[in-house]
Design a protein around this nucleic acid. Structure first.
Lengths: 338, 338
DNA sequence: TATCAACACGAAAACGTTTTCGTAGCATTT
DNA sequence: AAATGCTACGAAAACGTTTTCGTGTTGATA
């Protein structure tokens, strides 16, 4: 990399002080018109641009927000990034993206690196391992040190910070209600293990909707998928039961259920209705296309970024932590009869 | 954000100089054992971590690599990021991700911001608009200023830098050849407009494979999809022709073709074989699952990161620009009979 | 006793900015 | 003629590090 031109160099070349150059470039009234012209012309000619690092050190702010995600190859997370980036950009910030790969250790290290001056604040979705272990000290430390922090989607209420979440209970309720409304009686649910709160919440919504109909919850219709094992065979078990509908808490489970149903010769949606979660490409382009709870990842990203930047820029007045609940809605497609 | 503890503070509190503290923490032999112990204990207790910005300014390097992509909500690009991040991380770098949104102006601005000290080098996939306008001065400037740069996927040979590309011609050939081998005679191709080089290359591979069989290219079997128009109806026209196979240059075109075939009552793969491109979730989870050219985005990311970091760290010895061609391979699934 | 080396530490510069304060020179007012 | 004000600029500190060079003290050696 070629050395870039600096204020110092300009100052030396033009026989003035760095203060004069700095002021001239910022169009200070303290500097005479002629001197300003001379300096600006020189700076322009050599395409001077102030060095970010120096500014950041001087101003004690980086105008960068750090994002830590469990993974990125995932429609929802990349959508959220997109939303964050949009707002960040509009408000003059850049983003630095890191991944925990669902591992607690990497989450801790990443937080450490980023908070040593590289960023002004963090937006995080917590790694599964941290949630499972309930080892959240690294987050408590952030709060302790008053690092601006926004959690989204995977949150924990023991961490006192702004957060953006989906109304997962409501979403589970809506999805199940839709199935009930179109006449389904035996609705299976494919969800996550219990320590993943989003899965748990969606299950709660499901149970509420079922109970409202007066039917008792049938434990056999609830599948908790362990992602370390084979997904296909776990979901397959659900088809041993008599079911006419499936609510899956993500796209992949929904697609897998559809595959199994087809293999069993069940017609969709005539014999089996399916509702998924996350409006990704699978739901849209598979055939039949899948009715799905749309999660508004982009909006979540936008809101998270706004919360964070507000927090960063209003360091003075302590605002109590705020939680934004993004309500989701159902996009009805071919996989659930209407 | 609480003020963090600095070397200065430690020095003042312990009544020594900053040099002593710095040396002690780096375990210099110049400092007596007792003093070192004392300083380390203090630093440890207050959880001292050196400030990144200061280090970056001092060392004149950031250990950050900038990534500029046309968009992120796209399986291929997020996979590439993942690969870059892996290598970057292993080699002690962080990544700063920005998007051009396919717009030349934003590409230029982003490059400007990032190269003013924020990053040690750039990995870029060029925005469509820049390619279409052939306005690449911002890249020539980077080369001029010897900014370490690696282009991937969307490249241009007038820019003299390292690059990582897919062997699109070979991939198109392989895909078509596979269809020929399983007995297909009338193979349609759904590709992009001609200014998108990847689509053009894949078409070339297709044509080569067809010509090898002695069959003449039938222009009616070539669909150039204009993304500004309705994709479905454009692809639908292909089905007016007599076809027994389709090669689509991306997942979405492939899924759309399958949908149309199903609507027309064609059995897959018995009456129509389909091959897609990009091994994303759609191909894997739709039913039938789609035979596809896997693009190895992760590998591309890894290679790009390695090239860039090599370039950054060997600033001395000028290496001539290198191009890595990542060969793709076919993953055969249900949509093409075997 | 004078010389020298080793030890243990500090001062200062450097990275590139911005900003506060000081001041020399000149013009205006009383 | 003295006091005041303005213009136009420079010096220096600050942000947090690292590193080079210098130096005072001690102990050993000649």
């Amino acid at each position: 990399m070629k050395p870039k031109i600096t204020i110092k160099i300009i100052a030396k070349e033009l026989g003035v002080s760095t203060s004069t150059v700095s002021k001239a470039l910022r169009d200070s009234h303290e500097i005479s018109i002629e001197t300003k012209e001379r300096i600006k012309a020189y700076a322009d000619y050599y395409n001077y641009r102030p060095n970010n690092l120096a500014l950041q050190l001087r101003n004690q702010k980086t105008k960068v927000i750090g994002i830590i995600l469990p993974k990125i190859v995932h429609h929802f997370f990349s959508t959220v990034i997109s939303g964050i980036e949009k707002v960040a950009n509009e408000r003059g910030y850049n983003i630095m993206v890191c991944f925990s790969n669902e591992q607690q250790q990497k989450e801790i290290e990443t937080i450490n690196v980023l908070t040593n001056g590289s960023v002004d604040g963090l937006i995080v979705s917590i790694a599964k391992e941290s949630l499972r272990n309930k080892e959240l000290n690294h987050f408590y430390n952030l709060i302790e040190n008053e690092v601006p922090l926004v959690l989204f989607d995977r949150v924990h209420n023991s961490i006192e910070c702004d957060s953006v979440i989906v109304d997962d209970i409501g979403a589970g309720y809506k999805a199940t209600k839709h199935l009930i409304n179109i006449g389904c009686k035996n609705i299976g649910i494919i969800t996550t293990p219990e320590h993943v709160t989003v899965g748990l919440d969606r299950l709660q919504g499901y149970e509420r909707a079922i109970k409202e109909t007066g039917i008792k919850i049938d434990k056999n219709l609830i599948i908790n998928v362990d992602e370390d094992e084979d997904i296909y065979s776990q979901i397959h078990k659900l088809f041993d039961e008599k079911i006419d509908a499936v609510f899956a808490v993500n796209e992949i489970y929904a697609a897998t259920a559809i595959r199994i149903a087809k293999e069993k010769g069940m017609k969709i949606p005539e014999e089996l209705s399916v509702v998924g979660f996350t409006d990704g490409l699978i739901s849209k382009y598979s055939s039949p296309s899948i009715t799905t709870v749309v999660q508004h990842g982009f909006t979540m990203g936008e809101q998270a970024a706004d919360l964070l930047i507000d927090r960063i820029e209003n360091d003075k007045k302590e605002r109590t932590p705020q939680t934004k609940v993004i309500s989701s809605n159902l996009k009805i497609r071919e996989s659930s009869k209407s």
